[in-house]
Design a protein around this nucleic acid. Structure first.
Length: 269
DNA sequence: ATGCTAACCTGCGCGC
DNA sequence: TGCGCGCAGGTTAGCA
């Protein structure tokens, strides 16, 4: 599920319930996630969550003693529940708070992860990441320089977290459509002017999606447990064979790097 | 360094 | 109704 806007929406949803709260218990029902949930996660018990943060698609919960790193993978979601809410089949980890709430991770496919580190600044999953897409450091000059001599397609390039974080499969297609760029173009051959358009598109598309609370697809549920989010109008993603909203030609679906790509063969060159 | 592939899982919708 | 198949929002390890 979660693309960056959903992770950001989750962060904003859970923060009022979690920030400043003491953790009274941690329950690990299913430790077999993307990586095993470490038993050291119990060191969280008795700690106060001082602050919450998003980096790429990781949610970070900081305490004096260490940091919880949560990733939602493909199908994960976090919800605030009451202490007495019975866990379901895919509710793998609970972080029980002193305020009668608990933070519950549900993840049917178990591609997500819950980790614990005392050295957040040196964590291998985080320290090699590229810039945040909505920060100033992510700009056309940066992408242009970074792409010189790169032979992968532009779709694959912008989905590479070492290049820029947080551009997932939906918004990669949507951004390339907005920028009018064919997803099969080799990254190293795109002009500066086209990178200007692309960076603008990525920032715009992600900002809009965050504003609207994240695109709801399949099993995403907001932090408050709602499912009825307004669905951001998608121009190309999932619209195989349907008419392009600009030129009416059918949207084409191809596979790039084991992922589906959607684009308009006449609007995107 | 760069690029490509397999791998980790469950659930759902489709055609038969 | 049931079954098999293909597909799904992510990311890393490991290999050429």
């Amino acid at each position: 599920m979660p693309e960056l806007p959903e992770v950001e929406t989750t962060l904003r949803g859970i923060t009022p319930y979690v920030k400043g709260q003491k953790v009274v218990a941690v329950h690990i029902r299913q430790p077999k996630l993307r990586w095993p949930v470490p038993s050291e996660l119990h060191e969280l018990e008795g700690q106060v969550v001082d602050s919450l943060q998003r980096r790429a698609k990781y949610l970070l919960m900081h305490t004096l003693k260490g940091t919880v790193i949560i990733h939602l993978g493909m199908s994960g979601s976090l919800r605030i529940c009451d202490h007495d809410t019975a866990p379901g089949k895919h509710d793998h980890v609970d972080i029980v708070l002193a305020n009668s709430h608990l933070l519950r991770l549900q993840d049917p496919r178990r591609f997500g992860s819950v980790l614990w580190t005392q050295q957040i600044n040196r964590h291998p999953l985080l320290c090699a990441l590229g810039p945040e897409p909505l920060h100033e450091a992510f700009n056309a000059r940066y992408l242009y320089e970074k792409s010189r001599s790169r032979k992968v397609t532009i779709k694959t390039f912008i989905m590479n977290a070492h290049v820029v974080v947080g551009v997932g499969n939906i918004y990669a297609s949507e951004s390339l459509f907005m920028a009018g760029i064919n997803p099969k173009t080799i990254a190293g051959r795109l002009s500066m002017a086209r990178y200007e358009k692309l960076v603008f598109a990525i920032k715009t598309v992600l900002s809009l999606a965050i504003e609207q609370g994240g695109t709801t697809l399949r099993d995403f549920v907001s932090a408050e447990g709602q499912t009825g989010y307004f669905q951001l109008a998608l121009s190309v993603y999932g619209r195989t064979g349907k008419p392009c909203q600009q030129c009416q030609k059918p949207i084409r679906q191809i596979t790039q790097g084991q992922r589906s790509t959607y684009y308009c063969t006449s609007c995107q060159t």
